[in-house]
Design a binder for these strands. Structure first.
Lengths: 187, 187
DNA sequence: ACCTGTTTTTGACTATTGTCAAAAGATGTC
DNA sequence: GACATCTTTTGACAATAGTCAAAAACAGGT
């Protein structure tokens, strides 16, 4: 819980009142490796804060799993599309390690936003930070050779390379595992 | 201005007070085809509402222009990264047609957000809509052949194909103009 | 209808990457 | 230490897409 509050404080000042309220809204969740946090087709009713562990978001395309995102410590995770619209999720989120998470329901969040105007600003600023990271991920994703894509990732997000297994990274970069393996052997 | 207010009302209810305030904050801007709204390297101090016309966002990669986004009527446009962080923009936004835009400065927006708490919610919800469109654009962007990418775009955003010239669409889909031309001839 | 400049199409060739299949290397457990 | 399982590497071949260059189609203006 300390980590979560600290992350929120980094975004914007928090009154003691709202801090107490937050403590009540979030529930600790511990899940083992391999488990699914979000499953394709189900509506996603919670937003999670990831205290410990890592996970991946992926969707299916012609029977192939496409990893489009990795989550690590201090990230807020959910299928944002499904959480916002309350339509069934098109993606899955799977734990790549055992994880400690803090969950808040859509309803609790809505109540929080209606009660505390400062919470509204908190969420907006969190979105901005999230959006900027998303943008950085996609700039440089196009028109590159496998080698360039890998070198770019190595600079931009070495923690992904250190921690995630080859097949998932290949899927994330949009190439086959074999190609990625060959790229690596050439460096 | 009517269109802008209507768009905002679609997002969330507006009090008459805030409507008047909005009228004062936005400035009408008319620019000819080819002009740049945002230029790489310059800090972007305005957010625009596009009433009429269309435009493209692109960045340079090894001397090649990569179009990553198109804007049409009723879109809010800017280099969000630069506008939010006030760092120099990494992308350009160029008008593909003559356009009518409504501009609001970063300062005016900040004042608005501090004065009217409901504006805070307005921006958050606008972000959510924007984010969802962005996500839809990138899902299905990977692991596909040129033909599939084009067919996907045809379904998802036929207005882009009808209105934008071949070279820009090719750049947007991450393929050469020649390949796109061949794909089209096969259908 | 004609000229001019721009956009789109076509052709030939090359390079990169995907696919399938098998081998080699790690990791964990008994 | 040996076995089973999972991950990574290597090899051979086919298919897809990029590049360069030239031709054709289209649009706007006179």
């Amino acid at each position: 819980m300390e980590r979560l509050l600290q992350q929120l404080k980094d975004i914007h000042h928090l009154s003691t009142e709202i801090q107490q309220q937050l403590q009540e809204c979030f529930t600790k969740t511990v899940l083992p490796k391999g488990e699914f946090l979000i499953t394709e087709g189900k509506v996603c009713r919670h937003l999670y804060f990831l205290e410990q562990g890592c996970l991946r978001g992926f969707y299916n395309l012609d029977g192939k799993e496409i990893t489009h995102w990795f989550g690590f410590e201090n990230d807020f995770v959910t299928s944002f599309h499904s959480f916002i619209t309350q339509e069934p999720a098109v993606e899955n989120i799977q734990l790549l390690e055992g994880c400690i998470l803090w969950a808040i329901s859509k309803e609790s969040l809505a109540t929080l936003l209606n009660t505390y105007h400062e919470a509204e600003r908190l969420v907006r600023i969190a979105y901005e930070k999230y959006y900027i990271r998303l943008e950085e991920r996609y700039v440089n994703a196009q028109f590159r050779t496998a080698t360039e894509l890998y070198e770019n990732l190595l600079q931009r997000a070495p923690h992904i390379i250190e921690r995630i297994s080859l097949g998932y990274i290949a899927s994330y970069l949009g190439m086959s595992q074999e190609t990625l393996s060959r790229v690596r052997s050439r460096l």
